[in-house]
Design a protein around this nucleic acid. Structure first.
Length: 798
DNA sequence: AATCCGGTTCTTTTT
DNA sequence: GAACCGGATT
């Protein structure tokens, strides 16, 4: 049907109203918001407002549906309505807003028809929060704004029985997985040197990422010895996992894909449900995730993926940059929109990032720009040692704080975790408060893993791995041999270990171990029964009590045990928090949430500290001032990336990610020599530094080169046989003369003025390795412990 | 069962 | 240089 004159007029007014709603976005962003139908690739450069685009795109879909594009009048609308809308464009009175919005809606989507998939909990939470603010709690909670894994778990919880799993399945993390694999390698009596558990895990992981089942894997790989054995291991691993009723992280995706592929009715259910599919960080998806999203979007074909090929840094985890590079081939009629305007960094920083990433060949091509002209130059500083590099960083931070910056304005990023050590000790020497941003610290503690093992077994008694972990923790006289016998019995009777344990008295083979085992079995049964009546936190308390775990720790009463007790109580507060927050709290729900949770998910801690983290974990974050340390060839780019251009390009992307974290000021630091793996290594500055246009840099490199040359010349004249070593010694002598010569000695009672901490009084002085450890009570900032040598740069007696 | 020793290994790691 | 693991030792 051809649009009538009325249709045309109405559609154009409606378009104007809708555009007005999104008037705060730039043209490209708005294009992405309005392109609701069909496959869409949004290439979103760093800091280009991609989350904003995702949110507003969803808002547009929910509020206006096809309103922007439809050539027809809104169904049921009258001439009066048109007049009303036209008035509203001219003078948008707030009281008319509701009706105006309604008149612009042409088959808007229901919230449950939208799925937005992210990689991290943090990103998912941000989406949920912002959607809640925009469309209200009720609608927002119906939208599936989840991580890949949460999304898949929801699908699996409903239908996993079709795959022969039980609904109470357990989730294994990387450590659990490693345990299983190591046991299998031993069971097959394979050489643990050749079949390194981590390598095997990697192979199996890659297979799952690519949706290769054990059977296919075995067919493809049987000809070769090594891969043939990997195939055996994969097959056994799968069997073991099934017996334990357990899934690993890769399974969560792969099994979901299998479920959808093998069950047309389930697939159809989701394809009908999800009119709109959105995927964030698309450059980090693996093959399985690509298949999953295209299955989900297979009904309406409304798939919008957002990502940045230049920020793909997880190839080693199975991500294939191909997904984003070939999106247009994989989805017919796909549109691509580039977001290149950056709202985060200064022009200087963006020019550096652009200059660097231009050296990559395998990319779509983008150029970041900003209206924010200028910005101060990037500081490039080469030190002689890692210690002076760290001290340089500490000094810049203290200067900054003295000028009024907060500690949390600064972040230190490094390629490799070991680099944090030197910086940490410099921070400690200078009393700089810092926090290391790390994955699952809390959850990797033994006592916490024990607690979760108990809970998992209560939920899923097939979980033999966890059962074996706790059966004799705390010690209850169940030795390794007894467990072994029980396992053999389980195999003979074709049942699970838990059943043997709970009927241990019935097996004479168990001998003296039987009684203890039975007692443990009864205890676990009691806890399992409690689930019917008790709340989660009550169950947890009972578990601490009945298992004797708490008592065992209390009896020990040393530092270690006390901290373990504290951690166990900390977990209790997690449980209470979950109970208060969850709609329908359950053990399974809690365990699932915790399995997918990392320490880094904690709400951005309000405390004002410097943050330190790897460049990888910095993705998605931003800071006013960023230090990239260890910018040395061999370290960054890593010597491992020397082999292939592909790897080098990934390193360069990582550098690009790191640079674009900075909003105002970027520091690049490196050291001439560095103690690593027990020996001193000498390194050239990173080749990436040369890829940054020189005019953007304020560098001490040339100065140092001149200095070194002069020294060299001098030595040639006076000591012709000088060695490299000597030249280093003189360089460091020079350095230390700057810092040590002017060090005043401090005494108790001295009053001092510190650049960052203000006025204070020295309350204690301890000599320490040719230096002094000072304790200073600052009037405003409390008591700090500082090393005299480094502190004297920022402090004088008054 | 706990503790010591010695050998080995050492990117990055959203879930 | 440090951390982690496995085997041997008490």
């Amino acid at each position: 049907m051809k649009p009538t004159k009325f249709d045309i007029k109405f559609a154009s007014v409606r378009k104007a109203v809708i555009e007005q709603v999104f008037s705060r976005m730039n043209d490209r962003q708005r294009e992405a918001v309005f392109q609701t139908e069909g496959p869409l690739l949004v290439l979103a450069g760093a800091g280009s407002g991609k989350t904003t685009v995702l949110i507003h795109r969803i808002i547009n879909i929910l509020r206006f549906g096809h309103g922007y594009d439809s050539p027809y009048a809104t169904p049921g609308a009258t001439m009066e309505d048109l007049a009303f809308l036209a008035d509203y464009t001219a003078d948008p009175k707030p009281e008319n807003q509701a009706r105006a919005m309604e008149l612009c809606a042409v088959s808007p989507a229901k919230p449950w028809e939208v799925v937005a998939i992210t990689f991290t909990n943090k990103a998912a939470r941000e989406l949920q929060d912002r959607l809640t603010r925009a469309v209200g709690e009720a609608d927002a909670s119906a939208i599936w704004a989840y991580t890949f894994h949460t999304c898949c778990l929801r699908i699996l919880r409903r239908d996993i029985e079709r795959l022969g799993y039980n609904r109470t399945f357990t989730i294994y993390d990387e450590d659990d997985k490693k345990r299983v694999i190591t046991d299998l390698i031993r069971r097959l009596k394979l050489d643990e040197k050749i079949f390194d558990a981590r390598k095997v895990m990697g192979e199996i992981s890659r297979a799952k990422d690519n949706l290769i089942t054990p059977r296919t894997f075995a067919l493809e790989q049987r000809s070769e010895f090594y891969m043939g054995r990997i195939a055996d291991l994969y097959t056994l691993y799968e069997k073991e996992m099934r017996e334990n009723n357990a899934l690993d992280f890769d399974d969560i995706i792969m099994k979901t894909v299998q479920l959808l592929q093998d069950n047309p009715d389930i697939l159809e259910h989701y394809q009908r449900k999800f009119r709109y599919v959105l995927v964030d960080e698309y450059q980090d998806t693996n093959h399985a995730q690509y298949v999953l999203t295209s299955l989900l979007a297979g009904g309406y074909q409304n798939i919008c993926v957002v990502g940045d090929d230049d920020q793909s840094i997880y190839k080693f985890r199975g991500a294939t940059i191909t997904n984003i590079l070939e999106f247009e081939k994989q989805f017919k009629n796909a549109r691509t929109i580039r977001l290149e305007q950056n709202y985060r960094s200064t022009n200087t920083i963006l020019d550096a990032a652009n200059g660097l990433i231009r050296n990559n060949v395998n990319r779509k091509g983008k150029e970041l720009w900003t209206k924010q002209e200028g910005g101060s130059k990037i500081k490039l500083h080469r030190s002689d040692t890692q210690e002076s590099e760290a001290q340089y960083i500490a000094a810049r931070i203290l200067e900054g704080v003295a000028k009024g910056c907060k500690w949390s304005d600064f972040a230190i990023l490094y390629r490799n975790n070991v680099l944090s050590n030197a910086v940490e000790s410099a921070f400690r020497r200078n009393s700089i408060p810092y926090r290391i941003y790390k994955g699952r610290d809390f959850f990797s503690r033994a006592e916490i893993r024990d607690m979760f093992a108990y809970l998992w077994v209560i939920e899923n008694p097939s979980d033999t791995l966890r059962l074996k972990r706790i059966i004799n923790v705390p010690a209850r006289k169940i030795g390794a041999r007894s467990v072994e016998i029980a396992e053999e019995l389980a195999a003979q009777h074709n049942t699970m270990l838990y059943d043997i344990v709970s009927h241990a008295d019935a097996y004479s083979e168990l001998g003296r171990g039987a009684a203890a085992m039975k007692r443990f079995g009864d205890m676990m049964q009691e806890l399992r029964d409690m689930q019917q009546t008790a709340s989660l936190s009550e169950l947890y308390d009972a578990m601490l009590d009945l298992s004797g775990y708490q008592e065992a720790l209390e009896n020990k009463n040393d530092m270690e045990s006390r901290s373990r007790l504290e951690n166990i109580m900390e977990l209790k507060s997690n449980i209470v928090e979950y109970e208060n927050k969850a709609e329908d709290p359950s053990l399974a729900g809690f365990l699932e949430e915790m399995a997918l949770y990392t320490d880094a998910d904690q709400d951005e801690e309000e405390d004002d500290t410097v943050l330190m983290m790897t460049m990888h974990s910095a993705k998605g974050l931003e800071f006013p001032t960023v230090f990239l340390c260890g910018m040395e060839d061999g370290l960054f780019p890593s010597f491992r990336a020397d082999e292939s251009d592909e790897d080098l390009e990934e390193e360069r992307r990582l550098c690009y990610v790191a640079i674009t974290r900075a909003k105002q000021q970027l520091y690049l630091t490196c050291a001439e020599r560095r103690l690593m793996y027990g020996q001193t290594r000498y390194a050239r500055p990173s080749r990436f530094l040369q890829e940054i246009p020189a005019e953007l840099l304020d560098s001490n490199l040339t100065e140092r080169a001149r200095q070194a040359e002069a020294e060299q010349a001098q030595k040639k004249a006076y000591r012709p046989r000088s060695t490299v070593n000597q030249s280093y010694r003189s360089a460091s002598a020079l350095q230390s003369s700057m810092t040590t010569s002017s060090v005043p000695t401090f005494a108790c009672g001295d009053r001092v003025m510190h650049k960052a901490f203000g006025e204070g009084m020295i309350t204690s002085v301890k000599p320490m390795g040719g230096d002094q450890l000072l304790e200073i009570a600052f009037t405003a900032k409390g008591t700090k412990r500082l090393m005299a040598k480094s502190a004297s740069q920022f402090m004088h007696k008054i």
